[in-house]
């Protein structure tokens, strides 16, 4: 028996060899790395990681820090506005594109192209466009509206909305494309039926089509939301976190403490909080999505 069948470990050996990079990545980097960072967030690591347990000290310092609180507040403002606007605009654009229009490819190409650009490029272009002395604001003033004053790069009160404008420009195309794919997946008979019943188009969208597109809405939401938590390059390029600390974000806090401030413990604690935030979004979704089914 044993001689006729090779041992279980050797069976399908080539596939296992092929999967080694995946197994290493999944276990060492993703699982191991995450656990390591969470564990070291309870230490007093400074320039180098050291295992001197201090309990929740780093977290107390984190939540007592004004910069972190501003970062969290910014993340909420940016995140909430980004989600609402990009979904509303993205869906409306997708609905317009779905009206069997001509030049659909051209419109889609134009609206999606910023998504191909990096956040660095996006941030730098909008830094220039929003330049208070030479940018859009000066053009509007020159056109006669002398008192026009919109300088999100200098005014700390509205700085985060300057970043939001750039983020929306870059990211709405993606949502439009995903929504359009969802709309194309809707059975055309539904439209015929609602037309026969004399239901106006906007009502059909709100009460029939959108509920039917729930899965794609949720998937898009999870992707966009987990991207928002990570937002970093855009801030670095457009504002550098300023003016002052007005546009700081959690991801930047982590980077600055880990690689600039030589205060690893703070960086680990902050990144653990980011992990927690993502888990709160992703776990319910994963349970909804894969909980019932056996195959992931």
């Amino acid at each position: 028996m044993a001689a006729s069948r090779p041992s279980t470990l050797l069976r399908n050996l080539n596939a296992k060899i092929a999967a080694i990079p995946m197994i290493l990545t999944a276990l060492v980097v993703f699982t191991g790395g995450t656990i390591w960072t969470v564990a070291y967030s309870f230490t007093k690591s400074g320039l180098l990681p050291r295992w001197n347990f201090v309990g929740l000290d780093q977290y107390e310092r984190l939540w007592g820090s004004r910069r972190w609180m501003v970062s969290i507040e910014n993340l909420f403002i940016y995140g909430a506005c980004m989600l609402v606007f990009s979904f509303v605009i993205g869906f409306i654009l997708a609905a317009l594109m779905d009206q069997k229009i001509r030049f659909e490819n051209t419109f889609r190409t134009i609206i999606l192209y910023p998504f191909a650009l990096s956040f660095i490029v996006t941030g730098l272009v909008w830094q220039w466009l929003l330049n208070p002395d030479l940018g859009i604001a000066s053009v509007i003033r020159a056109m006669g509206w002398e008192s026009f004053d919109f300088d999100p790069l200098y005014n700390a009160q509205i700085a985060i909305y300057g970043v939001l404008i750039a983020g929306l420009w870059q990211g709405t195309g993606l949502i439009m494309v995903l929504m359009l794919a969802g709309l194309r997946g809707i059975d055309q008979d539904i439209w015929k039926a609602s037309r026969v019943d004399g239901i106006p188009a906007w009502k059909t969208y709100i009460f029939i089509i959108i509920p039917m597109m729930r899965p794609i809405f949720i998937t898009t939401l999870v992707i966009v939301a987990s991207g928002i938590v990570k937002v970093y390059d855009l801030i670095v390029a457009q504002t550098g976190g300023g003016p002052g600390i007005a546009t700081e974000m959690p991801a930047k806090y982590v980077y600055d403490y880990m690689f600039g401030g030589q205060n690893l413990g703070q960086g680990f604690a902050a990144s653990t909080m980011m992990l927690l935030a993502v888990l709160i979004v992703v776990i319910p979704w994963a349970m909804l999505e894969f909980g019932g089914k056996k195959r992931g």
């Binding site: 999944a26 999870v222 982590v254 960086g267 653990t272 993502v278 994963a286």
Partner: peptide, 19 residues
């Protein structure tokens, strides 16, 4: 392993940077 891998796509890079 595949499930962990996919899940890892959502984990913020920040927790894996230093490891």
């Amino acid at each position: 392993f595949f499930a962990i891998l996919i899940f890892g796509a959502f984990i913020p890079y920040q927790v894996m940077l230093y490891p």
